[in-house]
């Protein structure tokens, strides 16, 4: 699943979007990986990521099966703590941390290199700064996959602000119509950008939706620019 490859936006739209994730290769180095995944996330937390996530579990915002109706007036913008996500790791799925600055990512990568877990670590984001940060952290990149963007029936794509939000779930669980609705609600003053970002993030089942970037994009709608 290429769930982080094809986020949409101009280069400057990704200055606060670096997803560092770690995973085993099935059947090759998965034995004993769960404690390493937990350590990866705990190490990441020292560098103040925007959020952390666990594939198949999600992030700090999650849908609930039994909501109390009071929630319509009292809903928090975060449903789980970072530690609850870490504790919930019971299988060797991909886990990740999202950073909104190159400096924080670079500091984290230094620790990742030193930890030497032997699992594959990838960064999704602007390839040039990622390459430069890795180099400074003493890491020579092994492989790279470039996103060449969209082709085909491009007239079926939604407008840019919608696409910038909806493509943050690479599995397309985040509907463009919902992204458009949230942009409208923020523009109308019905919800704050933080609340709207939380609604959207709950649909990203891998938890790799970047709430900080989303808030920034939604704030543009508040100024009538979105």
């Amino acid at each position: 699943m290429t769930n982080t490859l094809h986020r949409y936006g101009p280069p400057e739209s990704f200055r606060d979007d670096f997803i560092v994730f770690i995973r085993n290769s099935n059947g090759r180095n998965d034995v004993g990986s769960i404690p390493k995944l937990k350590e990866f996330l705990r190490t990441a937390l020292r560098h103040r990521p925007v959020t952390i996530s666990q594939y198949r579990f999600g992030s700090t915002v999650r849908p609930a099966d039994h909501l109390n109706p009071r929630i319509h007036w009292t809903r928090p913008v975060q449903d789980l703590t970072a530690e609850q996500i870490i504790e919930a790791i019971t299988k060797d799925h991909t886990v990740g941390a999202i950073f909104d600055s190159e400096a924080a990512m670079e500091a984290f990568l230094r620790e990742v290199k030193a930890a030497d877990w032997g699992l594959s670590v990838n960064v999704a984001g602007l390839t040039a700064p990622v390459h430069a940060c890795a180099k400074r952290a003493g890491i020579v990149r092994h492989s790279v996959e470039y996103s060449l963007g969209f082709q085909g029936a491009l007239d079926r794509l939604p407008e840019r602000p919608v696409l910038e939000l909806s493509t943050m779930c690479g599995h397309s669980m985040l509907s463009p119509n919902l992204a458009r609705k949230m942009l409208e609600w923020v523009r109308e003053g019905r919800r704050t950008p933080e609340q709207a970002a939380a609604y959207l993030g709950r649909f990203c089942s891998c938890g790799i939706f970047n709430p900080a970037r989303a808030v920034r994009l939604l704030e543009a709608a508040q100024g009538g620019n979105g």
């Binding site: 490859l5 990704f14 090759r28 990838n122 602007l126 390839t127 890795a134 790279v144 470039y146």
Partner: peptide
């Protein structure tokens, strides 16, 4: 060699996934 080739072919790209090469088989 892929990156300069894609640029020569006129493709515009700036985002991607970078494997840092820290994984290994036991």
């Amino acid at each position: 060699a892929l990156e300069p080739m894609l640029k020569r072919e006129g493709h515009e790209f700036y985002r991607g996934k970078t494997n840092l090469g820290l994984g290994r088989r036991p």
